[in-house]
């Protein structure tokens, strides 16, 4: 992978990376740090990208790891009870809050699939779980999201 390709791909996937980071961290400052750190880590580990066509799932996986690293280090940890207001409100705040209320195991596959348009196979590759598990979790996630929206 050369630098031109790397820069071009990050430019193209910047929005997606922000949304993935925000799904986990829910804080713009933390997202900014995580995205920056993930980009640097990705370059360090660029040999691990086996084929260019897997860049999206590869960089997403690195970012998810980085976000959890942020949680683990206790840096800018945000509890569910104190979700800060983002700098710009999402278009559908009700949907946003309902999504954030889901368990993480359900929230991430759902957003990767239905917000970012990943296939079940891509979600499986990103999250390192079997495709059948992706299918099952998304089904479960949709039921849970309906329940959350009903409770609003």
């Amino acid at each position: 992978m050369d630098k031109n390709f790397f820069v071009r791909e990050l430019e193209a996937h910047s929005g997606m990376l922000y949304r993935v980071a925000w799904t986990i961290l829910r804080n713009d400052d933390a997202c900014q740090d995580a995205m920056q750190e993930a980009a640097l880590k990705a370059w360090e580990k660029r040999d691990s990208l086996r084929e260019a066509r897997y860049f999206r799932t590869w960089i997403t996986r690195i970012l998810i790891n980085t976000c959890y690293d942020t949680h683990r280090r206790g840096r800018r940890v945000v509890s569910l009870e104190e979700v800060p207001e983002p700098s710009a409100a999402p278009p559908d705040l009700t949907l946003s809050l309902a999504l954030q209320a889901l368990p993480e195991k359900l929230r991430l596959p759902l957003m990767l699939c239905y917000s970012e348009g990943m296939s079940y196979e891509e979600v499986a590759q990103t999250l390192r779980i079997p495709v059948t598990t992706v299918r099952g979790r998304i089904r479960r996630a949709k039921g849970a999201l309906r329940k959350e929206l009903n409770a609003e």
Binding site: S14, G15, Y18, R19, W22, T23, D28, C31, Q32, M35, P86, S87, A88, A89, P90, P91, D92, L95, S96, A98, L99, L110, M111, Y114, S115
Partner: peptide, 13 residues
């Protein structure tokens, strides 16, 4: 679901 997310801040990009 895209509506559940704020616009990516310029600072993040």
């Amino acid at each position: 679901l895209r509506d559940a997310f704020p616009q990516e801040p310029q600072a993040c990009h």
